[in-house]
Computed example of a mutant assay.
Amino acid sequence: MKRALLAAATLGAMVLGTSPASAADGWEPAPTPPYDLPAGARCDVPVHTEPVVDEVVQRVLDRRPDGSPSRVAFRGDLVVRVTNTDTGAFYDADAGGSAIVDHHADGSQTWHVVGPVLAGFGENAGNLARGLYVLDGVYTMDISATGYKSVRLVHGSADDVCARIG
């Protein structure tokens, strides 16, 4: 547990900083696009997601010899409205966690996260059931080159957004 708390403190110090983000210090906007999913893709109902607050920025921390990013930090407020397009029911998901994402040469990724992130899981495509979740706390998420997601919560929760709009 001490190791997890030390990792969280280190991540927070690396990502959060105290100065406002600007291109001069390497932080660049990282907008979250809206998207639509048919019924059954993540939730039993069709959904539309769209950011209502999006102040996320990213900073490349390491690059491969070819110049492609190998480690990227993300931070900033993000609230994503998840809407059941059949009924209009919606939930505003706080997804403004901080993360360091390692991009591996094989196309896989490892996310080291503190705070909430909105993550979708397809049928048999992760260690969580099909759905949209607000993952919150201290955790890692491995995403294979084929898209399989494996979440390891050190301390936190997985809130099923589909159930909120269902």
Score class of each variant (00 low, 15 high):
52 V>C: 09
67 G>M: 08
89 A>L: 12
116 P>C: 12
144 S>K: 02
12 G>F: 09
10 T>M: 09
154 V>H: 13
134 V>M: 03
92 D>R: 03
35 Y>F: 15
25 D>R: 14
69 P>H: 06
92 D>S: 05
140 T>G: 10
120 G>D: 06
22 S>T: 15
162 C>E: 04
141 M>D: 02
137 G>H: 00
101 V>S: 00
132 L>E: 02
89 A>H: 11
127 N>I: 06
1 M>P: 00
80 V>C: 11
20 P>G: 07
123 E>A: 12
151 V>E: 09
80 V>P: 11
95 A>S: 14
72 V>A: 08
158 A>D: 00
117 V>K: 11
45 V>N: 02
101 V>Q: 01
32 T>R: 07
122 G>E: 09
82 V>F: 04
63 R>T: 11
114 V>Y: 03
66 D>W: 00
75 R>M: 06
133 Y>R: 06
63 R>K: 09
97 G>L: 15
117 V>E: 11
59 R>G: 07
109 Q>P: 10
160 D>I: 01
69 P>K: 05
102 D>M: 15
93 A>F: 07
57 V>F: 09
87 T>H: 10
32 T>P: 05
35 Y>Q: 15
14 M>V: 13
138 V>T: 03
31 P>I: 08
129 A>D: 15
157 S>M: 09
49 T>M: 14
82 V>P: 12
139 Y>H: 04
69 P>G: 05
1 M>A: 00
163 A>V: 04
132 L>V: 03
139 Y>N: 07
15 V>E: 11
15 V>Q: 11
149 K>E: 10
117 V>A: 12
53 V>I: 13
100 I>E: 15
46 P>C: 05
2 K>A: 01
65 P>V: 01
119 A>Q: 15
141 M>R: 08
131 G>I: 11
88 G>L: 10
114 V>C: 07
7 A>F: 04
146 T>M: 14
105 A>R: 15
87 T>W: 13
10 T>G: 03
22 S>D: 14
95 A>C: 11
99 A>W: 02
69 P>W: 02
99 A>E: 14
83 T>G: 10
30 A>S: 15
137 G>L: 00
85 T>G: 10
159 D>E: 14
1 M>E: 00
48 H>M: 08
59 R>V: 08
62 D>E: 15
91 Y>F: 15
99 A>F: 06
98 S>R: 13
102 D>G: 15
6 L>T: 03
91 Y>I: 08
106 D>F: 06
106 D>T: 04
124 N>Y: 06
149 K>Y: 05
66 D>A: 02
77 D>N: 14
129 A>C: 05
118 L>G: 04
1 M>G: 00
3 R>K: 13
76 G>F: 05
134 V>T: 06
111 W>P: 00
130 R>L: 03
147 G>W: 09
111 W>C: 01
55 E>P: 11
107 G>K: 07
123 E>T: 07
45 V>L: 03
158 A>L: 02
63 R>H: 05
14 M>W: 08
163 A>D: 12
85 T>W: 04
15 V>W: 06
161 V>I: 13
23 A>P: 03
143 I>S: 10
85 T>V: 12
160 D>V: 01
75 R>D: 04
67 G>N: 09
166 G>K: 04
31 P>K: 08
74 F>C: 07
117 V>M: 13
118 L>T: 03
34 P>C: 02
144 S>N: 01
115 G>F: 00
39 A>Q: 03
144 S>W: 01
76 G>A: 06
29 P>I: 02
104 H>D: 15
61 L>Q: 14
34 P>T: 01
110 T>W: 06
